[in-house]
Design a protein around this nucleic acid. Sequence first.
RNA 1: GCCGCCAUCGUCUAGCGGUUCAGGACAUCGCCCUCUCAAGGCGGAGAUCACGGGUUCAAAUCCCGUUGGCGGCGCCA
Length: 490
Amino acid sequence: MNNVRVRFAPSPTGDLHIGGVRTALFNWLYAAKSGGKFVLRIEDTDEARSTDASTQVILDAMKWLGLNWDEGPGAEIAEFAPYYQMQRNELGVYQKYADELIAADLAYKCYCTPQEVDEMRKIAQANKLPHKYDGRCAHLTPQQRREKEDGGAKSVIRFKMRKDGSIILNDLIRGQIEFFNSLLDDFVIMKASGVPTYNFACVIDDHLMKMTHVLRGDDHISNTPRQIHIYNAFAWKAPEFAHMAMILGSDGARLSKRHGHTSVLEYRSEGYLPEALLNYLALLGWATEDSRQIFTIPELKESFSIERCGTSPSTFDPAKLLWLNGEKIRSKTSAEIYELFIDWLKFVSNESLIEGWDRELLKKAIALEHEKIKTLKDIAPLVDFFFTKEVVYQEEAVKKVFEKSKDSAKIVLQESFQRLAGQTDFSAQALEKYARDLAAEKGIGTGKVFHPIRVAVSGRTQGPSLFHMMEVMGKQEVLRRIETAVNKFF
RNA sequence: GCCGCCAUCGUCUAGCGGUUCAGGACAUCGCCCUCUCAAGGCGGAGAUCACGGGUUCAAAUCCCGUUGGCGGCGCCA
């Protein structure tokens, strides 16, 4: 019974979209959960918009996300290769089946030009009628066909839709949905260019590749009856269908560019982790009984089920994704974050950002700021002050800490410069004791001691735990910075 | 215009006829912790379960209708 086969079948007409990732993820999870196979197929039949670059981007993005496929481009198993529809088309795969349908009188050649069809559509629209092809070419006599062919007329192949009855779709997520055949028209299955249309290629491939389940966005729901008709025409068993609710932007419209980042690449560039993206996307349209939020990838694989997919569309919430990304980052070790950061810099081609930075110091600095990191992009601004030769003193910090209580700050820094020089134990613990003792000795609040030192050493009011920061920075550098501050501001 | 899908806190959702004056999470607000910022802990506010009818002893949960949102109606996928 573990013969589940599902697929993700993107068309390479752009970057991998968030919605596409969700579709891929749910299929991938379902395969994992049911011990089945996950297939990647490239639906590049849009001759005008498909690009190799886009295919590459999609493949790379899938790899980065860890959504590995059992079969598909580059996979070891190639039982149903090729996995590119244009390559399959060159093999004549689709033409063969289209010819079969014509022979069985279940499809026919149509000689109407795109302009003619367009004209028909406009007239229907003007009369507020449903626009569908009227099937005029279905009734051509052999004589008329011969004349068209001889005249060099281009033709498409249309599926001959029966007008009576209905198709009942038993959707795994939504239950029964009925579609009346009379509302469907004789849709095109092969274009004049000899390339199959989506609905046709999809069915042929899903059948040949032995797909058992088709899990996709509900924008495909109205395609489904057409596809079922094709399965029926070949007397093939149709796969199970499950249509998941769409992902919307904040304004309720389908998620698109104007809502912000929609490409996986953008999220990668922004410093998001694959597991955060995947975890977040899993929560859009799927939930467990206990409404649990945080899952590791293995936990997701274990918990997923189609039955628990929701039916109503959900709004993409960047704030929640950001929170989850922070959670994932906190759940890793600082050493792992360091590695991810290095990889990320490479990805965004910005390795020069940390040029000259001591790697060991960077690791320690990341450890100090670990819990504050929400995206990999946050890291550099959080720790860069460790590495600058000339400390950048934030104007506000200087005003707030140095100028406001100038006398005490001056004393604290001057004293510290002298005494710390003789400090042999430069551990955070010892430094804290030193600072507290100094405060007690001078009879001032600890804040009046801590804050000036913080600003002198880092140039800002916010940062890591002060004494750990000093320990990591080292005695020499701390002294140098305190001296600089004293000379500059007092 | 036609067809279809959907409808619980701002957002993601739990709920599948009574155990719910609706639970969790994000966001937001407050308090605590605290050398700052975070993180963490605690707490607050936030949903007449879109509306109107039914069915039932009992409905967020079932049925019908209305409204609204979204999707599809291509020689795009």
